[in-house]
Amino acid sequence: MGVTVGMILGFLGIALAVALPGVGSAVGVGLVGSAGSGVVTEDPDKFGQILLLQVIPGTQGIYGLLTGFVLMMKLGVFSGNVLRLTTFEGLLVIMAVLPIAIVGWLSAIHQGKVAAAGVGVVAKRPEELGKPVTFAAMVETYAVLAFLASLLLIMFGLPLKGVA
């Protein structure tokens, strides 16, 4: 059983779905972590509130991983019988993961910036934590929409049959 170009494209799709939002989340979480470390250096009591802000940009990485898992199931990776995709099917897989790959990547970075700015709010007015959390959560909307789009495309929009 040889490897088809479609299989390579399919695996590339999985890699994109997992890697790009993952990198974005790592950058976003790192940014909030750096700002948060600065606050905690001066005021260790704020650790809990800052941790809450720090996890927010991490969700895109989870969406990307979930998308990757669903795609792996669809391609039969877990059953050990990987579907031998045609080139066009491989391209369709890539198209299907693009929403979460691109939006997940960029939105995580921007959400990280918003959450890191929120760290400044917590530093000065810890009682106002809800407001920076809400601002950061607004960015999440677009990551969720992209995740849904990719998921629906993979589950219902990919008529994968492969080649014999």
Binding site: G38, V39, I109, A116, K124
Partner: peptide, 24 residues
Amino acid sequence: MWQMLGLESKYAYATGRVRVLETR
């Protein structure tokens, strides 16, 4: 991507510390 962040990420720690010190 790093250009997109630029000085923002480099000074994130400093910004966090300063935000607390400003209150003092």
